[in-house]
Design a protein around this nucleic acid. Structure first.
Length: 104
DNA sequence: AAGGTGACTAACA
DNA sequence: ATGTTAGCCACCT
């Protein structure tokens, strides 16, 4: 496991407790670069294709699922979160999580 | 090696 | 309050 930013992001993502969620910015900060939220998204996007990663526990700052990828539709992420014990409410085609309650 | 890119954010109009 | 703009920064080609 290389000691890179990407590796940390993956490791941190794996450590998100069941029933909790984290934001991209939060993970970026824990990985050492508080302003690299976008990079976190890119990493998850790519790494999820080759690793089994709980990427569904990572959402944006508003608690909204911002997945647009065809391989991983937001609806699938919503279901996975539901299995994690996280309530996901659908609003206008998007899925939302109560950060106050579920933020790691 | 250099430039383009994005599953983000915060700030501004 | 909602929409748009502009930084951000590591990864990929």
């Amino acid at each position: 496991m290389p000691d890179t930013f990407a590796a940390k992001v993956i490791e941190i993502t794996n450590r998100i407790p069941r029933g909790k969620v984290a934001t991209y910015g939060q993970i970026a900060g824990m990985a050492g670069s508080p302003r690299a939220a976008k990079t976190v998204g890119q990493i998850l996007n790519r790494q999820s294709q080759t690793h089994n990663l709980p990427w569904q526990r990572v959402i944006n700052r508003q608690g909204r699922i911002s997945i647009a990828t065809l391989e991983y539709p937001a609806q699938l992420q919503a279901e996975l979160l539901g299995q994690d014990g996280v309530k996901v409410e659908e609003r206008d085609g998007s899925f939302w999580v109560d950060l106050k309650k579920y933020l790691w």
